[in-house]
């Protein structure tokens, strides 16, 4: 009896949290999905729900909208990959090469841009990339540029901006994962005769895989919905889906179409994440198959069946 009361008490403690999530997140988002089946009856009404249809989705699929969707997807994928390429060596350096007593300070420095106002950081890039700005002048004076820098208000500027804005979100989980791999494990691997590269590819990187996955998610998902960066740096050429959605609510006052766009955005995002996750699993499977052969070739046969996850490879690297 006391047990049942305690369990009920624990769940009851979370009721306010439940209520809040349901009332101010689930219900509003459900309302958006509901609006997406409606239509805009006249210039003064935002939506009407007396005739339900998929017509708004058909509207979203028209070439003008679809091209922005695809451009957004491209900016997000390229941005995530660039963040990963910049972030992996950086996080590795921070977690492995930097002296431990300095590590906390450098880590705190990575947090500074992370917690500086997003919009203000983007404004910084607007100043840097301006045709009459100092970067432009510098590049011209050393002869790298013939005329003023011409990338502000283009897709390139948006790409630079998003890589900058989301890079800390990639670095931090990568660092946590590589830090967890630990100096002891790497030393063990080295003591047991594994070279530097072998330690990197068989101990540190496999241990960092969860960090890579969560870093990619943390960058890709908000990037798909970003519209601040594109509004500040993109101009007419570099617009993203977020701006389209926002303009339907702010200027066009067409909630039905805006809702449909938002739903398509969520579906696009989740589909891309699912696809990447599938590819990742496939890559891991292939990687393990390859290493299974590698392991059986020069090790005891009983270890062949043992490698189930990334950690199994690690133990092998360390135990040989």
């Amino acid at each position: 009896m006391r047990l049942s009361r305690r369990i009920f008490g624990t769940a009851a403690l979370s009721f306010p949290t439940w209520a809040y999530v349901l009332f101010f997140f689930i219900l509003p988002v459900a309302l958006v999905v509901w609006y997406s089946f409606g239509y805009k009856p006249d210039a003064f009404t935002t939506h009407a729900m007396d005739q339900l249809s998929f017509d708004r989705y058909a509207e979203v699929m028209q070439p003008t909208f679809l091209s922005t969707f695809l451009a957004t997807l491209r900016i997000s994928v390229v941005g995530t990959v660039l963040c990963l390429l910049i972030g992996v060596p950086f996080a590795y350096w921070l977690a492995v090469k930097v002296r431990p007593e300095r590590r906390m300070l450098l880590l705190a420095l990575v947090l500074v841009p992370f917690w500086t106002n997003f919009l203000v950081r983007t404004l910084g890039w607007q100043i840097i990339l301006a045709p009459e700005g100092f970067l432009s002048g510098m590049l011209q004076s050393i002869g790298l540029l013939g005329g003023p820098l011409d990338i502000l208000y283009t897709r390139t500027a948006v790409q630079i901006g998003v890589v900058y804005n989301y890079l800390p979100l990639m670095i931090l989980p990568l660092f946590v994962a590589m830090d967890r791999a630990g100096a002891t494990l790497r030393e063990a691997s080295r003591d047991l005769g594994a070279g530097r590269w072998r330690t990197l590819f068989q101990v540190t990187l496999p241990m960092a895989m969860p960090g890579i996955a969560s870093g990619c998610l943390l960058v890709f998902i908000p990037l798909m919905g970003d519209y601040v960066t594109a509004s500040v740096l993109g101009g007419a050429q570099g617009s993203m889906v977020g701006q389209l959605v926002a303009s339907q609510f702010n200027t066009a006052q067409n909630w039905a179409l805006g809702s449909a766009m938002a739903v398509v955005l969520i579906i696009f995002t989740l589909a891309a994440v699912a696809l990447a996750a599938g590819l990742g699993l496939l890559a891991r499977w292939a990687f393990q198959r390859y290493h299974r052969i590698d392991v059986t070739a020069d090790d005891a046969p009983d270890s062949a069946g043992a490698d189930v996850g990334g950690t199994a490879i690690t133990t092998e690297g360390a135990s040989r």
């Binding site: 769940a11 979370s14 977020g242 959605v245 938002a262």
Partner: peptide
């Protein structure tokens, strides 16, 4: 209930802010 709550809270974390914005305005 704990798994469901964790899932919902994680879902609020991964939802693009633009969706929160356009969902809360009509609400």
């Amino acid at each position: 209930w704990a798994a469901a709550l964790t899932f919902l809270l994680a879902f609020t974390l991964v939802t693009p802010e633009i969706v929160d914005g356009i969902a809360l305005l009509p609400w």
